[in-house]
Amino acid sequence: MGILEIIIAKASELNVFELLQWLPTSGYLAKLTKDQLKKVYSIIRQKNNLGKFAFVPNAEEYYALTKLADKSVYRDFKKLLKGHWGVDVVRTGLYILSLERKGEIDQINLVKQQVFANKQVSGLRLIGMVTEGVIKPALDYLKELKEKKNFSPEDLNKAFEDLLNEWEKITIFVKSDDFVETIFKKAKNMVDQKKQTFFIFAKGKAIAVACAAIVRLQKEEYLLEKGYVWFAETDLDTTPPSYYCAAYSSLFLM
């Protein structure tokens, strides 16, 4: 049996992944004529075109990103903002969150650089919304607009772009040594400035302060009178939660 026949016989028993592992170590490739090599390439293409395998630098990364399609934030974003440029950025942001939990700082910085290179500042802003947990209440707010104000897909996209451009300016970042009263006053200030939406965000020990401030705000009828409704998001993947984010939106100011 000639070398080509040996390869053909062996290839019939192997899938493309096994074939690509076996062939280079077999010692046969260097002995093939040009025409025989073309035949081997044809066999490889036939097997690869079955589409069963993708050959990737880091399979774990692919599987991790595949699983993130099940996250409600990703699903809601795709559903509410059909065709939005940021859909892949949202999944990338969720991936960065998983890297944060593992403390992989260098990898996080690299991914952010890649997002910036491709989607510029808007991409990084969207990453921030995802990693800070602002995205979930923001999407809840969009759902309200869709259901109660009959916003069209175009209107929803516009509302989201406005939020994206402004979210850092309309977020009260709570620190663990903040007074509840300070947060309360900052929130009232947002209302007095007629901010349609604002966020209260806290991480770690500051979560307790943020929650106390929100309890205080809920008791205050001032917000209710101005038509503000409330959405909250907490990180359910960690115990205790690593962040907490509340959004107040006025349906009167639309």
């Binding site: 690509l20 592992q21 050959f55 630098p57 399979a59």
Partner: peptide
Amino acid sequence: FEELDVEGKKLL
């Protein structure tokens, strides 16, 4: 999703 070695990738 699989990781191929250098020679396997070159061959493909």
